[in-house]
Design a protein around this nucleic acid. Structure first.
Length: 838
RNA sequence: GCGGGAGUGGCGGAAUGGCAGACGCGCCGGACUUAGGAUCCGGUGGGUAAAACCGUAAGGGUUCAAGUCCCUUCUCCCGCACCA
């Protein structure tokens, strides 16, 4: 083997990155004559440096993009920056760098790192959400929502992160804590802007069915998040005449109601307790619950606490007078903020009733069993026979449920009702580094949207942006004070900025026409490129980003702005990159820096390792030794090609056929074409890059085997050439620099990345002889070479004729023979019983 | 608690119901070499002298045949979590 054949990855990677850039190799334009493929990876927040999760995400995306490009698709593969957000402000506060500078510096560095990876992006389409050319259109979209009545302002108790000093959307509260900084979230009463995503709850739920290319896991998470429940709203009347609406999924249990419970914040509570003897105690209770943290309040383990208000209501179904309580476990935000207590048929209610000595009444009996309301400890929640329920007694509860709703509708004290857990999307943020909400407040005209021609509402520079809980823009006088677009009088701008999830809800549309200065996106180009054919990113966005992007797409579809109502046809959610079984983090000190790895081993090695180490959906444990392995493999390929390069170059134009080949060459051809088949299927149908790479490794092993076994003078140049050319082509999406260099080494024309993806030759896969397995009672007993393509009967004949098989069968009775053509023969035998022989 | 996913060599991981452990790492041996932490070749689940046999979290079942299908249990991970 040639000695001086070390692969100089540094020189090679740099060389090709420069050439690709110079040639604008991955630029793409609409081409109606070619099938399109939109390959998109979630764009990163420009935190300053790529991390291994990015490397994984973008390595996967690049294989997909390159694969489809080689398969004749016109591939859109863009990259950009989710560039507004809190870290820029926090860094600015800490280091005294303006957020804009910090962000743009980070973008520059991460762009450089991405280019080091050799990812095939069309950099002409790069977008950054913090650029006025971009956020102008984010603001424009806000206005479209506003005009459609989908953006509105309301006062309510909202989630507040004391550390970030801003409000959070419901989705951004994870287990009572801030999604970003893990601080415990509190409630604050504020007037805020919302998007009416609940109007789309049903469609967001229904259309999950269209997403056959999404993992079930993600769809289930969204389904749970939307949280549809069907039931009824029933109106109880309080003694003071006020209506108390309750939502229930079990209207069939309405005759079992023995009390009502309101959320402590329920607007009716104050007037209900007015003048009642225990009013002060109730007020004290409410105060106590209010200061309870969200976590304490909503934890399943938390003690259910309540207090009687002193007031009563009437059950419209049976006229019964029932006490009205308030309790910490009833949430104002869900349903109507009031529930009916049916202790016999709801576990929570039962526990509450037992604690406070409230009566328990059974109204549904299980078939063939008697419930004792005095002693039961488990609520009965299944269907059964209606009892104690007036005219509905004696019928099946599932039937009664519907009749009770009809009855309520007729008499006007209830109706069927669908309720969702999904809340409207709170998009105001009391922070600086975001797109200003394009709204102006005028004393005379009220809330006035900024006219479209006045966009963008520019974010002022030189603002003191320390988080105070109020928007820093309040202190920017020049920004704040403006003229009313309607009457020209003095007016104030809205000072809150837009949640960054809004910015990332439409970036995939902007990529279609990133430089269009007259509109958010060009409908014709969107029509050509959308929807995204393959979206790739972390599962942590399963709810937040992916649901918001779906919502945006649906709204824009309804506005006639885009032709699709789902943005992402196929979704791949990659697993995390771990080190020693734990998430990489600075505090654990187990962070592996992509840039260092690339400098030490090269981008191809980093990419290959990360694709080979685990299937993409699974978590991947970073292994330094595994990286070494990938590095070795790349050098092994390099040496192999160097070794055969002269012969392969000579053989240009020769075509390999099956005729007249010796055994070793037929085997090599077979290995080549089997690999083409395997790699193609692994990439296209399952994204199993790990097994695709392993099969390429097998091909390399087979080629080494050939060059060792057959003396160089006897090498079949055509067969060898076929192998090498295919090897390089198959490997091209994984290790683009190495393969491009080898392509040149072999003197091939053009770029390997412009080659047509190979198709396998079925004839090359044909074997004359195959090995089959002989089993006796399912246990492996022998292996046997038989001619390929023979049928079951012939196989059976050959096997039974084997001396070894005859020996194994002696003294036994052959009961049955199972033949799986091409695979195995299983002989089912049993001991001959002495009596029945012959 | 509810919902989802996963348990396979020393490790990462392969296996349309049909040879468990492909490929890689690690380890062992050989070759080449002044040298090898480079490279090439071979071996490598346990067990045995060799077989037999035992092995895919545990237990049961279906089947000629189960890592794969069904039931029960355990463990771990993820999501939701008083949702009325």
């Amino acid at each position: 083997m040639v000695e001086s054949s070390r692969y100089h990855f540094r020189l090679v990677e740099k060389k090709w990155q420069e050439r690709w850039e110079k040639a604008d190799a991955f630029r793409v334009v609409e081409d109606p004559s070619a099938p399109k493929f939109y390959c998109l990876e979630m764009f990163p927040y420009p935190s300053g440096n790529l991390h291994m999760g990015h490397v994984r995400n973008y390595a996967i995306g690049d294989v997909v993009a390159r694969f489809y490009r080689m398969n004749g698709y016109n591939v859109l593969h863009p990259m950009g920056w989710d560039a507004f957000g809190l870290p820029a402000e926090n860094a600015a506060i800490k280091h005294g760098i303006p957020p804009a500078k910090w962000t743009w510096d980070n973008i520059r560095n991460m762009r450089r790192q991405l280019k080091m990876m050799g990812v095939s992006y069309d950099w002409n389409r790069e977008v950054a959400t913090c650029h006025p050319d971009y956020y102008r259109w984010t603001q424009w979209l806000f206005l479209q929502f506003y005009h459609k009545g989908l953006a509105y302002k309301k006062r309510s108790a909202v989630n507040w992160c004391p550390s970030c000093a801003t409000v959070l959307a419901n989705e951004q509260v994870i287990g009572g804590r801030c999604e970003r900084c893990d601080t415990e979230v509190t409630k604050k009463d504020l007037e805020q802007w919302f998007f009416r995503i609940t109007d789309y709850a049903e469609r967001l739920l229904q259309d999950l069915e269209k997403l056959s290319g999404w993992p079930d896991k993600v769809k289930i998470m969204q389904e749970n998040w939307i949280g549809k429940s069907t039931g009824a709203e029933i109106v109880f009347k309080a003694e003071n005449g006020k209506e108390i609406r309750v939502f229930t999924t079990r209207p069939d249990t309405v005759f079992g109601v023995t009390y009502l419970v309101l959320a402590p914040e329920h607007p009716l509570v104050q007037e209900l307790i007015e003048g009642k003897p225990g009013a002060d105690d109730v007020r004290a209770f409410i105060e106590r619950v209010r200061v309870q943290s969200e976590i304490d309040r909503t934890s399943t383990e938390a003690e259910k606490e309540g207090i009687f208000t002193g007031a009563y209501a009437v059950n419209p179904f049976n006229g019964e007078r029932i006490p009205i309580w308030i309790a910490n476990y009833v949430l104002l935000e869900y349903g109507t903020g009031a529930v009916m207590g049916v202790p016999a048929h709801d576990q929570r209610d039962l526990e509450f009733a037992r604690k406070y000595g409230l009566p328990v009444r059974v109204v549904i009996q299980p078939f063939g069993q008697d419930l004792d309301p005095e002693t039961m400890t488990q609520a009965y929640t299944e269907p059964g026979l209606m009892v104690n329920s007036g005219e509905f007694s004696g019928i099946d509860s599932e039937v009664a449920l519907l009749r009770i709703i009809s009855c309520a509708e007729e008499k006007g004290y209830g109706r069927s009702q669908v309720n969702y857990r999904l809340r409207d999307w709170l998009i105001s943020r009391q922070r600086y580094w975001g797109a200003p909400i394009p709204i102006i407040y005028c004393d005379r005209c009220g809330t006035v949207p900024v006219p479209e021609e006045d966009l963008p509402v520019l974010l002022p520079v030189d603002v003191a942006f320390e988080p105070t809980g109020e928007s820093p823009l309040l202190k920017a006088e020049e920004f704040l004070n403006t003229k009313c677009p309607s009457c020209g009088g003095p007016a104030r701008r809205e000072t809150d900025t837009i949640d960054t999830f809004v910015c990332s809800s439409w970036y995939f549309l902007r990529y279609c026409s990133p430089h269009d200065s007259g509109r958010a996106f060009d409908p014709e180009k969107v029509r050509y490129w959308m929807p995204v054919d393959q979206y790739i990113g972390g599962v942590e966005h399963a709810i937040l980003h992916l649901m918001y992007a779906r919502f945006f797409t649906k709204v824009l579809y309804d506005l006639g702005l885009v032709p699709v109502d789902e943005p992402f046809t196929n979704l791949l959610t990659q697993g995390m990159v771990l080190k020693e079984g734990a998430k990489m983090s600075k505090s654990k000190g187990n962070v592996v820096s992509p840039e260092e790895i690339i400098e030490h081993y090269g981008a191809d090695t980093a990419r290959l390792f990360i694709l080979f180490a685990a299937p993409p959906e699974r978590d991947l444990d970073w292994s330094d030794q595994g990286v070494e392995g990938a590095y070795r493999f790349i050098n092994r390929v390099w040496r192999l090609v160097q070794h055969v390069a002269a012969v392969v170059r000579e053989a240009r134009g020769a075509s390999a056929g099956n005729g007249g080949l010796r055994h070793e060459e037929r085997e090599l051809r077979r290995a080549t074409h089997r690999t083409i088949q395997k790699v193609t299927e692994d990439i296209r149908t399952r994204f199993n890059f790990n097994t695709a790479v392993s099969s390429i490794m097998e091909l390399v092993n087979a080629m080494y085997h050939y060059t060792e076994q057959v003396p160089q003078a006897d090498w079949n140049a055509a067969v060898l050439r076929e192998s090498v050319i295919n090897l390089i082509t198959l490997l091209a999406p994984f290790t683009p620099h190495l393969t491009e260099e080898l392509w040149e080494v072999l003197g091939e024309a053009g770029s390997v990345h412009e080659q047509k993806w190979p198709a396998y030759d079925p004839a090359a896969l044909v074997q004359e002889e195959i090995e089959i397995v002989v089993q006796v009672n399912g246990r492996l007993r022998d292996r046997l070479k038989v001619p390929a393509g023979i049928g079951a009967k012939e196989m059976e004949g050959i096997v039974l004729a084997q001396p070894r098989v005859k020996e194994m069968l002696s003294g036994k009775e052959l009961v049955r023979v199972i033949c799986v053509p091409g695979r195995l023969v299983n002989l089912v035998v049993r001991e001959k019983k002495s009596g029945e022989a012959r």
